[in-house]
Design a binder for these strands. Structure first.
Lengths: 149, 149
DNA sequence: TTACAATGCTTGTATTTGCAACTAATGCTG
DNA sequence: CAGCATTAGTTGCAAATACAAGCATTGTAA
């Protein structure tokens, strides 16, 4: 009842439905774009995260993406197997590793920002520049990210 | 060698990252809420869709949700197995079925709008009422839904 | 009418995923 | 320092998922 439904289907005014629809579309595009540069979509998020800041342990890595631990564990396995990252012993704890990108991984990751930006723009193409800023700001607030500016 | 982080992290202003984050959160909530009324999250979307309009074939059903056909096929299997829907022969074509809700399915589906609305509100709780309308309108435009106002 | 393409749907199989149980290391309390 | 809780990460196995190949029906066009 948030919206006046003038022939409009309920699901089309549901926040959750819209988010899930966009999520699926973005996923399809990212899969295609990542295939071009030979990166598995599964490891993409962690590769990008490590590119922003590596030298963290797996728990910290997983927490940033809301991934369960078993998933991060296997994800790092895949990164290591692909030669993109390596586990180094944590000098402060023998039960954890710190994950670092290899040179190969860093080169791969360097290709990501462009792909990410283009994918975002592709899906935002129906919006004006101002609307794009607005929707991102609103989504940040929804997620709980403080925009300090 | 950790990267220098200047202010806001890149991923936090990425449309795609925000959408995927919200998608995962919404999924977690919906799973919990649907468990309360004994509905598998897998069949939820189709159940709701059939509640809005049943008597459509599987291809039409899947198209509305961007689901691949094999998935719709197994999804309808699950709906039928749960006693929520039935396949009736299409009078116009012997190769397709029309899917209809059963009385049991219709009763189950009647519980969905409340759960959906509450889940949406839960995740939108950081926004003002105006902001909620704005974000939904912007997402509709992003998806390509014409808002006939 | 025959042949070939497209539609609608299903299913075998390989891979991915999720849960829970596990090891190992560390922290905490008395 | 003994005992127990917590942290960090891994793995076996069952279930879910995705791809491709399949079948039957319908459309089209020579």
């Amino acid at each position: 009842m948030a919206q006046i439904s003038r022939g409009q289907k309920n699901r089309e005014s549901s926040f959750g439905f819209l988010i899930q629809t966009l999520g699926r579309r973005l996923d399809v595009t990212m899969r295609e774009r990542l295939k071009e540069v030979d990166i598995d979509v599964k490891i993409f998020a962690n590769l990008m995260l490590l590119y922003e800041a590596d030298g963290v342990n797996q728990r910290q890595l997983g927490k940033k993406l809301d991934f369960p631990e078993y998933y991060t564990s296997r994800n790092v396995d895949a990164l290591v197997k692909a030669g993109f990252a390596e586990r180094r012993p944590d000098p402060n704890s023998r039960r954890s590793f710190l994950i670092y990108l290899t040179e190969k991984g860093r080169k791969k990751a360097a290709q990501l920002p462009k792909i990410i930006a283009e994918t975002n723009e592709l899906h935002l193409k129906r919006l004006t520049l101002k609307e794009r800023k607005d929707v991102v700001a609103l989504l940040q607030k929804t997620v709980g990210i403080e925009t300090t500016s």
